[in-house]
Design a protein around this nucleic acid. Structure first.
Lengths: 236, 236
DNA sequence: CGACAACTTGACGTTAGTCAACCACGGTGG
DNA sequence: CCACCGTGGTTGACTAACGTCAAGTTGTCG
C-alpha cells in the first residue's frame, strides 16, 4: 500500500500525481493544475474478498477507480436467476451511473481483495466540464464499458457450453498481467456464462484432460491461449 | 417527411429547431445559439428494411440519431454464430464509437424502414466541449446504452426459452408507442435470445395458444403485458 | 398466379440441467 | 496436533429442454 493508508482520506492534488494507476485511469493526462482543482477528498479503500462495494438501487454518489483485484457487477431477476454482467479489473471504473445521477445498476462485489479510489461523482461531473482531457477520458471509459458489455453478450452467452467456457478462459488470460490468471469460482463462472456449476465443472475437467488448461491453486490457472483459440476458431 | 427531403443536406441551425425528435434526441435542451454553431451539414436519411447503416470495423465518422423505425446492432463470431446485441428505436443513438474515434463495433441494419440524422462525429465532439447541455445529453445516452446492454444480458440471455421470449415481448411492448408492437422475424429473435428459429416459433405458438399473445399481421403483435409479467414473476 | 422466403410442426438426438453422493481443502476448536 | 465441519468442487445417473433434420404450410411480392 504505497499511496495512502487504508481508509484514510487524502487530497487528490497531493497524491494523485503519484498514483501508479493514474496513467490508465480516469485522471490520466490531467494537467497538474487541474488535479489541484480537486480539493475535495478522495478516499483510498481496500475491500476483502466477498465485500460489497455498492448495491443496486442505492443512491449513486461515488464512482470508483479499481487499482487492484477483480470486481464483479451482478444483477438479479425476479424469477430468482442471477447474472454477472461484467468483471472489472485494474483501471476500470465502477459506478458510472453516479455521473448521470442514476442509482447504481448492479451489486458490486469483490471477487478478490481489491483496492479502489472512491471519488465523489459531483467532482468528476464538474471537472469534466472544465477539463477536455477528463471529458475525453470519461467518454473513453464509457465506450470501453459498452464494448465489453456487448462482447459479453456475443462471446460469453452464445453457443455451446464448451465454447463459452473457452472464451471466458481466453478473456481472463488476456486480461491478466502474468501468465497465471485469476479464475473465478465455478458458481461465478456459471453466472457469467449462464450455465450451472456442474456444467462448468465438467467442462473445465474436459479442458484439463485435453491438456488445454492447467489449474494452479484455488483461484488460478494457466492455459495455452493459442490452443484455446483454435477450439473456438478465433484467429491467433 | 416533414423535416427535409430524403438525402438532402441541410443546415442544422435552420431545421433542428423544428425537428420533432429533438426533445428526446441528442440535441435536446440545446440553446438556439448553440444550434447555430453547427454550421456543418447534417444529413437526413431514409433506409429501407434490410439496408445497412454502417458496418463493423468501418471507420466511424458519423453518429446517427434514429427518428423512426427499428435498427438492429449485430456482431458475428469466428465460429459462425451471430448475435443481435441491441435494438434501437426512436431517440436512440447509433454509432457512438465514432465519438471516441474507434471503428464501428457492429453491423447496423434496418429491421423496418428507418429515418435517421447523420451527424459528423467531430462536430458533436467539438460541441460537447462547449455546451454543457450536449455534454450531459451525451453521457446520458451512453449510460442508457450501457444499461440496455446489461439488461439484455440478464433478461434476454438468462433462463429457459419461454422466459426469454416472454421478456423480449415485454420489452417490445413497453417500448412501443401504441398497443400493437413491432415483432422481429423468428430468426432475428433467435439471434437476440440465443435460441434457434424453431424454438422461438414453438414458444410463440404456445403463448398464442395460452391467449397471452396475439399476432397482428406479419411483423406486429399485441399482448397483455401484465399477464406476461406474471409468467416471469415481474412486478406489474 | 407462381415462386420463394418465412414460418410451423413433427420425430428424433444431444446437450445441459437436476438430484444426489462423494471428495478435497482450509479453518476451527478441542 | 488432529478431528471435525463447512464450503466449494467433482462425478455419476437420470431427465428435461433445446437443437437438428426434414417435411409441410402460409404468406408475400413480383
Amino acid at each position: 500500500m504505497t499511496i495512502a493508508e487504508n481508509n484514510k482520506a487524502f487530497l487528490a492534488s497531493e497524491e494523485c500525481s503519484l498514483c501508479p494507476t493514474r496513467e490508465i485511469a480516469l485522471f490520466a493526462n490531467l494537467k497538474p493544475e487541474e488535479l489541484l482543482q480537486m480539493h475535495s477528498p478522495i478516499q483510498y479503500k481496500v475491500l476483502e474478498k466477498g465485500e460489497k462495494l455498492y448495491a443496486r438501487n442505492e443512491k449513486a454518489d461515488y464512482i470508483y477507480t479499481l487499482h487492484d483485484g477483480v470486481l464483479k457487477l451482478e444483477q438479479y431477476l425476479p424469477s430468482g436467476e442471477q447474472r454477472i454482467v461484467r468483471l472489472l479489473r485494474r483501471g476500470d471504473l465502477a459506478g458510472l451511473a453516479a455521473i448521470t445521477g442514476d442509482n447504481y445498476q448492479h451489486d458490486a462485489i469483490a471477487l478478490t481483495k481489491i483496492s479502489v479510489c472512491k471519488i465523489p461523482a459531483d467532482i468528476v461531473l464538474d471537472l469534466s466540464h472544465k477539463s477536455p482531457e477528463l471529458h475525453t477520458n470519461l467518454l473513453n471509459k464509457w465506450q470501453l464499458a459498452l464494448t465489453t458489455s456487448d462482447t459479453w453478450i456475443t462471446k460469453l452467452s452464445t453457443g455451446p457450453a464448451r465454447y463459452r467456457v473457452v472464451r471466458l478462459m481466453i478473456w481472463l488470460a488476456e486480461n491478466s498481467l502474468d501468465e497465471d490468471f485469476y479464475m473465478p469460482g465455478r458458481e461465478d463462472m456459471g453466472n457469467i456464462l449462464s450455465l450451472t456449476t456442474e456444467t462448468v465443472s465438467r467442462t473445465i475437467a474436459e479442458l484439463r484432460r485435453d491438456g488445454d488448461l492447467e489449474l494452479r491453486g484455488s483461484n488460478s490457472a494457466r492455459a495455452d491461449v493459442s490452443k484455446l483459440k483454435k477450439i473456438v476458431k478465433e484467429p491467433t
